[in-house]
Design a protein around this nucleic acid. Structure first.
Length: 181
DNA sequence: GAGCCGATATTCT
DNA sequence: GAATATCGGCTCC
């Protein structure tokens, strides 16, 4: 069991420390990915869903650290975040990408293809079987979706975030060496 | 390989 | 009514 305090802090500080951790999904078969790409979203950040306060969609973003926040992107894809703020503070890290380490067949079946299994936020959710019903899950508790600490990558690069139009210059995207797509 | 486009839930103006 | 923390399929070099 991970010490929840390891996930509590400013999203931009916690985000890079999540690189190398593993996300485990045990539903229709076991699938595990190593996290290789993340982005930070903080309450004072105009690009964050939490910036204007909680809404029905974003309420889990204001929970304690280690909670899964899942939202629908462009009305089509699911995207998964891990909360990092103390309860009441809307702060989270978007899981943008990972590499399969276990259960590759399970991921291929969910994705309907054998390449690009989890190299994007929507793809990662589909490969892991994460959807709206999983919003609010405690990733540090025993369950079908869990987060496990792993060794940090040899290095990582820092870049501006992808696909946003506000606060575009904040260097809050972190990609493990060798995984910049 | 680069670029356009459609799908469409939630929120904001 | 418009924008968005995306993706995959299509076109046209």
């Amino acid at each position: 069991m991970i010490d929840r305090a390891r996930l509590e802090g400013h999203a931009a500080e916690v985000a890079p420390s999540l690189l190398g951790w593993r996300l485990v999904s045990e539903r229709d078969g076991r699938a595990v990915v190593t996290i290789t790409e993340v982005e930070a979203y903080a309450p004072e950040d105009p690009a964050s869903h939490s910036h204007r306060g909680p809404t029905p969609r974003t309420r889990s973003m204001f929970g304690p650290p280690g909670i899964l926040y899942v939202y629908r992107s462009y009305g089509i894809h699911w995207c998964a975040n891990v909360t990092t703020g103390p309860t009441g503070v809307g702060s989270a890290v978007l899981l943008r990408g990972g590499v399969p380490v276990e259960g590759r067949e399970v991921m291929e079946r969910r994705r309907g293809r054998s390449d690009h299994l989890a190299d994007g936020p929507g793809k990662l959710c589909q490969a892991m079987g994460i959807e709206g019903a999983d919003d609010g899950t405690d990733l540090l508790a025993a369950g079908a979706l869990r987060l496990e600490a792993g060794p940090p990558p040899a290095g990582y690069i820092t870049t501006p975030r992808i696909g946003i139009s506000r606060a575009v210059d904040l260097p809050w995207r972190f990609v493990a060496d060798g995984h910049l797509s």
